[in-house]
Amino acid sequence: MTIVGKPLDHPLLEVKGLKMAFDVTEKRFSKERHYLKAVDGVDFFVRRGETLGIVGESGCGKSTTGKLIMQLMEPTEGSIIFDGIDLRSLSNEEMRKKRKDLQMIFQDPYSSLNPRMRVFDIIAEPLISHRVAKGRELYDQVLELMDVVGLNKAHAYRFPHEFSGGQRQRIGIARALALKPKLIVCDEPVSALDVSIQSQVLNLLVKLQREYNLTYIFIAHGLPAVKHISDRIAVMYLGRIVEIGNKEQLFSNTKHPYTEGLLSAVPIPDPEMRDKKNRIILKGDMPSPVTPPSGCTFRTRCMYATEKCSEVVPPLTEQESGHFVACHYPLDTKKQQGVTQYV
């Protein structure tokens, strides 16, 4: 596959042909092996200072992609070039040092904080691990971080269970921010939170991005969550990117039927508009990634599918500048206004 939309400047992160297959063979000694292709050939890049949203249903491989970028798993194939260096070529110790520039915010603010550690120690951990600060300096830095993410400094010696979900996620953000990283992978950072808290945390992330010139990869399962924060969005389906482009391109000039379906699934708060809206409801479930359909993997649920779709895998092709789609019959829409307006 070709590198999609090679940027003019040197991107912060470039992912090429990333693949991750898990061996799920049930019979231990059978010759035929079954693989779950969680990520099946993904290419993208992230520019400095931008936010790339990755969207898809659960099981589409978006979280796995995040973990692969973080080198928390060893990919089966592909390369991850961060700041000009292929992370896979680094030794363990080199990679450990590199993690200073590469942090992650986790989905579940309950399980991602050690229940036996105090908030101070949790936020101080990255600073201690990389020997950035100690003693008085460490103390000041941790308290400053708490202030930055909007936590009460007086709570530094409490345990995580004494906080609400939103506050816990702030602790997680402070921890990721501690080393002033270049890239933060946010793995569904708000999906475990109350709706009212979600926007607070999102606003915090936006504010921090501006202040510290951060680059985000923002993983989410719905388009509304990423619309607020992303500059560009990649839509994933069954381990592949089906559409990637600028936020505006993706929303107002949707090319892939799956993206259209995702957009259509967004609830509209106005009943009148809801009736006018031409809802496209995706039929059925996502097929098993162990035995994906031939050709275009989306064809089993696509209302436009033809013979060709089951035979030829559609390559990711550029439809307009920087807007790529993997579909034989990209939608030709100046979209019905009703759909996009309220998303």
Partner: peptide, 14 residues
């Protein structure tokens, strides 16, 4: 396999 251990690894703790 718990998240906080994975988080610690992602931070770069030895």
């Amino acid at each position: 396999e718990r998240d906080y251990v994975i988080a610690s690894r992602s931070i770069g703790t030895k």
